[in-house]
Design a binder for these strands. Structure first.
Lengths: 367, 367
DNA sequence: GTGAAAGCGCTAACAC
DNA sequence: GTGTTAGCGCTTTCAC
C-alpha cells in the first residue's frame, strides 16, 4: 500500500509478482502453465493476475521465444508485374482511396466465393488454437518481397499460400529463405514444400460421366484459364473421360473463372454449336453465367441443356436451377493446410507432405 | 574476417554495425530513416544491411516502441451466445475441422459479398502503409474476450470493427479498456468511438422515389433483419418516403439479408399481394432471391414487377436482369474507417469522429 | 519447487 | 553527426 505508484501503465510480470509475493519466474510459470509450481502458489498468482488485470506483452514474449504465434494467409497472384494490365477484367468500383493498381486485385480475389471459404477453413482451424491469420496479398514482385520481409522480421512464423496462377515465384522465394510455408494447390515447378490439393481430374471425370449418364451426347465445356493448374487439370480430366467414352472431340471455350467470362464463353459455344445439350463449366461462377445465357437464348436448363459446375460454392445454390456440381471441400482443405503448417512449425525438421482431396459429385437440378 | 562465427542465426543490428564499422545506434538511424546521418555513412550502412541480409526483428522493435504496427479487423456478431442457435440459416457445409459452433459464423460472414468488399477497402488502405490486418471474429462472449486480450497484449494497436448486429457489446468493451477502435456502422448505444456509416434512410428514399418514378403503385418491401440498425433505417426511410407520397401502407416481409430469406419473403408477399408491381429489397442478395421467385411465379422483371436492391454488390451484376440498386461505397467506407483508426493511433488524444457516406442510385435493368 | 540473473534485439536519451 | 548506455517485458538456465 505504501509504494504502488510504479504500477502505472499496463501491469507487467513484475507487478503481478509483487502483488503475489513471488518472483517473476514463478508468475511466468503459472501464466504459461508450466507444472512444477505449488498448487497453493498457483492460486495466489492467479488471483494476483486477475487483480492487476495482467496481460502478457506479446512482443516481449516473442523476443525471447522467437515465435510470433501468428501466421500469414497470403493470396498470391501471377508471376510478373504484367498482370497489372489485366485488371480491366474487374469492374473498378473503388473510388477514392489510395492503393493504386493493388486495389483491383484484392477486389477481384473476394469476388470469388472461393477465398471466403479458404478464410473460413483457416480461421476455424486457427481460432481454437488462439491464433489469427494476417491477411496479405502478393500479386506483384514488390508485394512478394514484402511478404518475405514480413516473415523474416518474425512478424509471422509461417505462411499459408493460396496461388491464383501457376509459375508463382512466391513458394520458391519462401523456401529459399528458409521460411515455413504450405500451399493450397500443387506448385507448378516442384518445390520441396507441403501442399494440399484436389484431385481435379477425378472431379472433371465425375462431371463428364454424369452428363453422359443423363443421356447427353453433344457436350461442350467452358474451361478455366489454361495458365492455372486447376484449369488445365479440369480440362484434361474432362477430355480424357469424354474420349474414353467415344467423344474424342469436345468443343471448348476458355473462361477466367468469373461469371462474366462464363457468359461470354457460353455465347461462343452456342454460336458454334447451337445444338449442344450438355455443358461442363470448370467452376460454379461460370456455370451460373452459362445458365443465364442459355436461358436468354431460349434454352431450358436442364431440359434442353444440362449444366454441371465445379466447386459447390455458394453460387451453386444461388443459381436457378441450383447447380449440379463437383464438390471441392475448400474449408476442409484449408483447415488441413493450416494443420500442416502448424505441424511443421512444431517440428521444424519434418519433411514436406502433400494431401490430395477427392472431389464428390453433388446432383441438384441443373443436370 | 577473423572472427565472424558469431554472425550465426539471423543477423542483428550488431552484426550490421560490425560489418559497417559503426555503432548499432547509427545503423538503427539509417534503417529507420532518421536524418542526422552522414550520407556517406548511410551508404556504407545500407551496403552492410544488404550484405548481411539484415531484417529488423519486429518483436524487439515493438518492445521498445510499444507499437505493434498491426491492426485487427474484427467481424463482430450478436450480443449473446444465443446466436449459436441461429446457425441453421446457413448450410453447414463444413465437414471435418474443429472449431465447433464457430465454424458456421465465419462461413456465414463470407457468404455475403459485403465482407469481401470491407476487406478490400481495408487492405487497400493499409498496404501502401506497410500494414496488414489480422482477421478476427467475435460472435461469442469468449471470442470477444479474446479480441480484447489480443489488443491488451499489444498484438495489434487498434481494431476495425464490423458489427453484424445491434447491441454488440464489443465497442463498449474496447473503449472501456481504453483500446483504439473504429466501427463500420453507428453503435446502437452511443459510445464515444469513431465510426463510418451510410445514410441508409436516404438510400431507401432513392429506391422509393425511383419505383414511384417508373410508375409503380403497388409496392412492397423486403426488409433486412429488424434487429440490425441498417435493416431498421432502410425500412424507416422507405416507409417515410412512401407515406409522404401518399402510400401510408406498405406490405413488408422481413428477411435476413440472405438470398434464401429474400426468396421466402418474396413468396410471402406474392401470396398476400399477387398484384404487386414493385419491390424494394433491403439488399442485393435478397433482391436476387426475389427475382428468382418472381420469375418462378410467372412475373417478368421489370415489366410486371420492378425490383430495386441495395448495396450494389457483386450480386447486383450477377443477377438477371442486372439490378437497379442503391450503391453503398463499401470499399471507400472501409478505407475511411481505416484512416480514422490510423489517425487516432497517431494522435491518441484526438476526439471521436464519424463520417457518413451518401448512397447513390444505380439504375440498371430491374427497375 | 522457487528465485536470481542473464539476456532476446531493438530504440532513444544522453553525452560527446 | 555519432557512440554509449539503459532499459522495454519476458523466458529460461542455473543455483538453491
Amino acid at each position: 500500500m505504501t509504494d504502488d505508484r510504479r504500477s502505472a501503465g499496463t501491469p507487467t510480470l513484475e507487478d503481478v509478482a509483487r502483488a503475489a509475493g513471488v518472483s517473476r519466474a514463478t508468475v511466468s510459470r503459472v501464466v504459461n502453465g508450466v507444472r512444477n509450481v505449488d498448487p497453493a502458489i498457483q492460486e495466489v498468482v492467479r488471483q494476483a493476475v486477475s487483480v492487476t488485470g495482467y496481460a502478457p506483452n506479446r512482443a516481449a514474449r516473442s523476443l525471447v521465444t522467437r515465435r510470433a504465434d501468428a501466421v500469414a494467409l497470403v493470396v498470391s497472384g501471377a508471376g510478373t508485374e504484367a498482370e497489372a494490365g489485366q485488371e480491366d477484367s474487374v469492374p473498378q468500383r473503388f473510388g477514392g482511396a489510395p492503393g493504386g493498381p493493388g486495389s483491383s486485385f484484392t477486389a477481384q480475389v473476394f469476388a470469388d466465393p472461393f477465398f471466403g471459404r479458404v478464410v473460413t477453413g483457416v480461421v476455424d482451424y486457427l481460432r481454437p488454437r488462439g491464433m489469427h491469420p494476417v491477411l496479405m496479398f502478393a500479386e506483384t514482385a514488390r508485394a512478394r518481397d514484402e511478404v518475405v520481409a514480413y516473415l523474416r522480421q518474425g512478424s509471422a512464423d509461417g505462411a499459408l499460400i493460396v496461388s491464383t496462377h501457376a509459375e508463382d515465384p512466391l513458394p520458391g522465394l519462401l523456401t529459399e529463405a528458409g521460411l515455413a510455408a504450405v500451399l493450397y494447390a500443387r506448385p507448378a515447378r516442384p518445390v520441396r514444400i507441403s501442399y494440399v490439393d484436389l484431385a481435379h481430374q477425378d472431379g472433371a471425370r465425375l462431371a463428364a460421366e454424369h452428363l453422359l449418364a443423363v443421356g447427353r451426347r453433344r457436350i461442350a465445356t467452358i474451361s478455366g484459364p489454361l495458365d492455372v493448374p486447376a484449369g488445365q487439370a479440369r480440362l484434361a480430366g474432362f477430355r480424357d473421360t469424354m474420349e474414353r467414352h467415344g467423344h474424342p472431340y469436345v468443343p471448348i471455350a476458355e473462361g477466367r473463372f468469373t461469371q462474366e467470362s462464363g457468359e461470354a464463353a457460353m455465347g461462343r459455344l452456342l454460336a458454334e454449336h447451337p445444338d449442344l445439350d450438355g455443358v461442363f463449366a470448370a467452376n460454379d461462377l461460370m456455370a451460373m453465367g452459362a445458365c443465364h445465357v442459355l436461358r436468354e437464348h431460349g434454352r431450358r436448363v436442364p431440359e434442353d441443356v444440362a449444366v454441371v459446375g465445379f466447386d459447390d460454392s455458394s453460387a451453386a445454390l444461388a443459381c436457378r436451377p441450383p447447380l449440379t456440381t463437383v464438390r471441392q471441400p475448400v474449408e476442409a482443405m484449408a483447415a488441413e493446410m493450416t494443420r500442416l503448417l502448424l505441424d511443421r512449425l512444431a517440428r521444424p525438421g519434418s519433411p514436406a507432405t502433400s494431401v490430395i482431396f477427392e472431389p464428390e459429385l453433388v446432383v441438384r437440378a441443373s443436370a
